[in-house]
Each structure stands twice: as C-alpha cells, then as structure tokens.
Design a protein around this nucleic acid. Structure first.
Length: 447
RNA sequence: GUGCCUAUAGCUCAAUUGGCAGAGCACUCGGUUGUGGUCCGAGCGGUUACCGGUUCAAGCCCGGUUAGGCACCCCA
C-alpha cells in the first residue's frame, strides 16, 4: 500500500459492494416486473433540479427542505438542489413533456439515488436510493387502493411477513384548515401540560405534535380532535372507499389517526408500510453467549419501508392543470438491510461460471483465449486466470469458483489439438479433441 | 443540529491495565516433472483513524478533529 492518504467517501455516502449487488438486482427485477405488469412505465429524471421545485412542492417549512436539502449556486447564479425525493421531479417532467395530454391515467415508476443532508444512522444515509410509483389522472379510491396493493405485493414478493400498513386521511384544502384550527385550539388550551418540544411545535408545525413519543403528550392526544371527524363529505367518502377496497383485498391495514407526513403536498390518503416492531424485551432476553446473533443488529424493525399518499394539488401547484395523483416511494437500503435481518433468500445468481479454463505455457494461453470466446458465444460462461502460470494455482481458483469441469490445455495438448477435461468432483479426466469440445462440454453439463 | 458510545492488518478481535505490535480468517506462493478441496510451511499485510499534550516510555491517560454506531429531531 502506498503512503498516500486514502481518500474516504463523503460522510453518509456508501459504496454498494459486489456482495450486496445480488440483493439490489433482485429487488430491481422484482419491482420492475411488478410495475410493468400493472401498466407502469419507467421514467428517469435528473438528479439536479432547480431548488425552487422542491421549495414549492415539498414545502418551505418542512424539515426536508429547511435542514436536509443539498443546495448550491452555479456560476451563472442558478439555485440548484440535489433531489431529496422524486415526486416533484416526476411531476415537473410530466408537465414539461406535455404528458398531461396523454391518455390518462399516466402511470410512471422510477428508481434512483436521492440526497438528504441528515445525520447518518442505521437505515439512513445522505445518499440513498428510492424507487416508487406515481399515477396521474385517477381520482378514484380504487387508484389509492391499487398503489397500496402493489406496495404490499412487492414486499410480500420479497418474502416479508410481519408488515404493518398504517393509513389515514388528512383531508384537502377544503376541510383541512378547519381541522388544523380545531387541533391548534385544543393544544393551546392544554399548552402547559405538553412537553417542551411540543410547545415549540405548537408554534411551528402543529401537526408534528402527533409524532411525539412522550407519554404525557400521547395521553393528551386521546382527546384531541381527529382528522377523520373533520373530513368533508367528499374526503370522507373517498377514504371510506379506500378502506373498503383494502378490506376487499384483505390488506392488513391499521387506521392511524396520528399519521401525518413530512411533505406538504399530500391530500386525503396518506400511508406507510413498516415492519412490525419486535418488542425490546425479546432483544434483552437474548443469550449473551450467542455471539453470532448478538452481532446482527435488528436495525430495520419498525423502520418505515414504504411511504406515500395522494397529492391532488401538486400538479396544479407546479403550474399544471388540476390533476389528481397518487403514489409512494420505498427505500432500497432499508429493504436490503431488512432482508438481511430476516434472512430472506434471494435466488442464486446465474452468472456463476460452469467451467474453468486452465492453461500451461504461452501457446496454450493463446488457445485458451479463443476457446473462452467460443464458449461464451455458445452460452457457457468460463472462468480463467490467464495471469497465473502454475496449474496448481489455477486449479485452486477453479475449485473456489465451484465449477463442474476444468479444461486443461498444456503445451502438448495445444499441439495435439486436444483438451483435458477434468470433472472436479471425481477428479476423473479424459482427453477430448479440440474440434468437438463445445458439444462435449454441453453434453456433460446437461447430464 | 443535539446527546451517549466506539475507532488496532482487508475482516473478526488480542496485547497481563503505561513497558519490543499479535492471532484466526482472507489473500499470494510453496510442499521434486503438468493437477484443486483436507493437511503442513512460508510470505503479504500497521506511523494502532488523524493532530496535539502528559510521561524516561502512550495502542492504553488527557484535549481536539474526522469517521462509524445508537438515540433525539425527522425520515425512505
């Protein structure tokens, strides 16, 4: 190693290393297949957007925009931002490319890196990956139910069992103000009893009080006005139907009157899917001598995997026609971590080589190179280690790759135009003419 | 942004409490002509995260920085 100092990755940003790639690939394949089955088409949007896009959509007073957004000024003076989420970008692309005149609903899905300047911890990174769906132009409750169902389907498809779907309705511009007023009044009258933080929240962002975990505050919640009682007829009807659809598909939902989301653009339905929290007692009771297990930290239980909702005002807010929309996003890093915690299997990679080419001497090495390509063209992936000269070392690699056969070409074989075919399990070898080697190997791999 | 904990070889961890920097795994190469796994041997790998302080002497004590973990805030 050189004496130069090694440059580290930026805080909160990580490499996705080869051992993790199968998980990522698996998730990608699962969701892209599912989305396409449901008629969603993929869209990729730039990682950089005008900062204003997020100020206007997510909301200036939200934590995401206020404290977590990577913004900077270009030389020309434009305020840009690394996208903290993708819904706003998709809406921007939808409008900019005139998709509002496409036959509706317009159903889109995406996958890519997002950026939030937050304090890194388990399941939370400054650069992380999300995928998600956005469906435009369908205001029916069925659309809400469908996207929620898709989220459940893919999670179950990955093997997750103990899922909790929390759902709520936060009304719309018509009924939300009344609720917020009543809600605010309620807590103002009980200001003294609230925890210090909630007293602050009362001034800045009242709804956030609902997130408080203090027991004192939670006690007060029990009597607080609930969204559901303030929904106007339209909103109430919409939400009721969403629930009916969820009943129909037997989704394991849980009405959560305290569920609000950190983005301003939501209207009506909001939901989250998380893993059931394991009781802390179970962790404490774990045997201390079981070293293997205690190292595995169940970081992902209780962590939200999927979150979304309806945002009927957003398209209009960003300068487009009034267009209903609904969608959600999922965090890939969290999914991968959760899959590992629950030991969820992924299918074995098909890219493992089936055979290995070992060679001795330059002449044989040249033959080997040609042979490798011939096998590749015939759909047989071969491993090689052309840089190694000793047969011993090459067989060691072959063994590690767990191949069925190793083809050995020495100087003699190269001249004779033959190949030694060694079956690794038994160690039995046979000499085969180079001519028919592809067919011979194909035949043996089949049996 | 706040609080607590942590940092020794690529990985998992030792170092008798301040006295020569170590092991296992992994990796590379050997163990008599051109044959893997098991076994045996050797090699590679470190300015103990970084900067400073105390001391005859610091991986160990003290201060700072950086990074990681956890919790809060919030969130995918």
């Amino acid at each position: 190693m050189s004496k130069q100092k090694i440059i580290q990755s930026v805080k909160g940003m990580h490499d996705i290393l080869p051992p993790d790639q199968p998980h990522w690939k698996h998730i990608y394949k699962k969701v892209s297949g599912l989305f396409e089955d449901y008629g969603y088409e993929k869209i990729d949007t730039p990682i950089l957007e005008p900062a204003d896009l997020f100020l206007r959509s997510i909301g200036e007073a939200t934590d995401i925009v206020e404290k977590e957004m990577y913004t900077f000024k270009t030389r020309g003076g434009d305020e840009l931002a690394l996208r903290p989420e993708n819904t706003a970008s998709v809406v921007r692309a939808y409008l900019e490319n005139g998709m509002n005149v496409w036959p509706h609903p317009v159903k889109l899905w995406y996958w890519g890196p997002m950026f939030r300047h937050d304090q890194p911890q388990a399941g939370r990174y400054r650069q992380f990956h999300q995928f998600g769906v956005e469906a435009f132009g369908d205001e029916s409750s069925a659309a809400d139910a469908e996207v929620i169902y898709m989220a459940l389907l893919f999670l179950e498809g990955l093997g997750f069992k103990n899922l909790v779907l929390k759902i709520n309705s936060i009304g719309d511009a018509n009924c939300r103000p009344q609720f917020i007023k009543a809600f605010k009044d309620f807590f103002k009258s009980r200001n003294k009893k609230l925890c210090a933080q909630c007293k602050l929240r009362l001034k800045t962002n009242v709804l956030r009080i609902l997130d408080c975990k203090e027991i004192i505050c939670r006690e007060i919640f029990k009597e607080a006005p609930q969204f559901l009682d303030f929904l106007d007829e339209n909103c109430r009807d919409h939400f009721k139907k969403v629930i009916e659809f969820l009943d129909e598909i037997k989704a394991p939902y849980m009405l959560d009157p305290y569920l609000v989301r950190g983005l301003d653009y939501y209207t009506n339905t909001v939901f989250e899917i998380a893993l059931e929290e394991t009781p802390p007692l179970a962790v404490a009771e774990e045997k201390p001598d079981d070293k293997e297990k205690s190292k595995e930290q169940p970081v992902s239980t209780g962590l939200t995997l999927v979150a979304g909702g309806r945002y009927n005002k957003l398209v209009n807010l960003l300068g487009g026609p009034v267009t209903p929309a609904v969608g959600w996003a999922a965090g890939v890093e969290r999914l991968v971590a959760a899959m590992k915690n629950f030991n969820l299997r992924i299918p074995e990679s098909k890219s493992q080589p089936k055979i290995f080419l070992a060679q001795l001497g330059d002449f044989a090495k040249r033959k080997s190179l040609v042979l490798f390509e011939e096998f590749r063209r015939n759909g047989i992936k071969a491993g090689t280690s052309l840089g190694r000269d000793s047969i011993k070392a090459q067989l060691r690699i072959a063994n590690r790759l767990n191949v069925k056969f190793t083809l050995i070409i020495g100087h003699k074989e190269a001249i004779d135009k033959t190949v030694i075919l060694r079956e690794m399990d038994s160690g039995i070898q046979e000499v085969i003419p180079m001519e028919g080697i592809i067919e011979a190997v194909k035949k043996r791999l089949k049996s």
